[in-house]
Amino acid sequence: MAKFLNTSATNYFLEELIKQAKERVILISPFLKLNDRVKELLEDKNRLKIDIRIVYGKSELQPEEIQWLKSQDYIRTSFCKNLHAKCYLNEDSCIITSLNLYEFSQINNNEMGIFLSREEDGEVYKDAYEEAQRIIRVSDEVRISMEKIDEASVSNTNEVKASSKPPHEKLTTSKLATQLKLKTSELLDKLVQQGWLELKGDKHFITEAGKQNGGEFRTGPHGAYFLWPAETELK
């Protein structure tokens, strides 16, 4: 049965939600700024290869957050425009609250929240989970758009620094998909079939074959992405 949470209870149940996750953690919060305790909990889940998805709504990440995220193989991040929701889920429970992630453990704040159990609040949990998945889908589209902008900026910078280097020699997966007249998801499937990417859970990793064929894994301010030679042809 749903539980009302005050500030201290929200902190407690959020920590337990992350600790008890066996399959996945979804954290939706406007600000991607994590305190040491949350990082410690997520690092432990990362070591256990638990799929972690973080959606945030403010595009400026601090350098320390970027470096920390780079070191976590099973944490995926994406940017969602106009995000104001604060919702935290694992495979069994959900918290909908006023608490931002960066405010975790700040018990002097006045926060409210609702705790939902998949077992006891099945319909409401299902609705919350489906909305979280919708936000993730929308955030992916925005993140892909940001990658295109980032790539253009990188190309222009490289052109100035090394004029001998072709300005558009590598494309993001989404841009290459457009060039090949495919959807991004279709191109990702083809890259997996060709052995250039490997799918673990719902996260893609570049293989040695992918690197040998010019593929690169990059991490930018708006998340991780791949670059491929513009002349890439698939079997």
Rank of each mutant, 00 (worst) to 15 (best):
L197M: 06
E131K: 11
I54R: 00
Q67K: 02
G215P: 14
A9V: 13
M146K: 11
E60G: 00
L187P: 14
F31V: 15
L182R: 00
E91I: 09
E186Q: 13
E233H: 03
S71A: 14
L191F: 07
I136N: 05
Q193L: 10
T10I: 15
E40N: 11
E233Q: 08
Q133P: 03
K81R: 09
N213S: 05
Q62E: 14
D202C: 02
L234A: 13
E159F: 06
F79H: 06
A230K: 07
Q193V: 05
K45V: 02
I107F: 12
Q20R: 06
A152F: 12
K45L: 14
L199E: 15
P166Q: 07
Q133D: 10
I96K: 13
V138G: 01
P63H: 00
V25I: 12
R118N: 11
R137L: 10
F115L: 15
N46V: 08
P166D: 02
K19Y: 13
E123F: 04
N158H: 10
E123T: 07
E231I: 12
A85C: 02
E159I: 00
E159V: 01
F115Q: 01
R137I: 05
I149Q: 06
K126M: 05
N108Q: 10
L188K: 12
F115E: 00
D121G: 04
E64N: 10
A177D: 02
E169P: 07
T157K: 11
I52K: 00
T173P: 10
T173M: 03
Q194S: 15
D140S: 06
E123Y: 10
A21I: 04
L34A: 03
S105W: 01
K70E: 12
F13Y: 12
S164H: 15
S59Y: 04
A230W: 09
S139W: 06
F31G: 02
Y102W: 04
N156T: 02
L69W: 08
Y125P: 14
Q62W: 04
L32C: 09
D36E: 12
E216D: 08
G210H: 04
T207Y: 06
M146T: 01
N11D: 13
I149Y: 12
F79M: 02
Y12V: 15
L171H: 02
S8K: 03
N156L: 14
L42W: 05
N6M: 09
T184K: 01
E91Q: 09
K175E: 13
I18S: 06
K161Y: 14
R24E: 14
E120Q: 07
L182W: 03
S139F: 08
F217Q: 10
Q67G: 02
A230E: 06
D121S: 07
G113W: 08
F104P: 08
F4S: 13
I28D: 07
K19A: 14
E65M: 15
Q179L: 15
H84I: 14
A132K: 01
G215L: 06
I54T: 00
K161G: 03
N213F: 11
Y225N: 09
E103A: 05
S117H: 06
L197S: 13
K170N: 04
V138Q: 09
E208S: 01
T97F: 13
N46Y: 09
D73P: 14
A162Q: 15
A162F: 13
I75P: 06
K148P: 05
F226S: 11
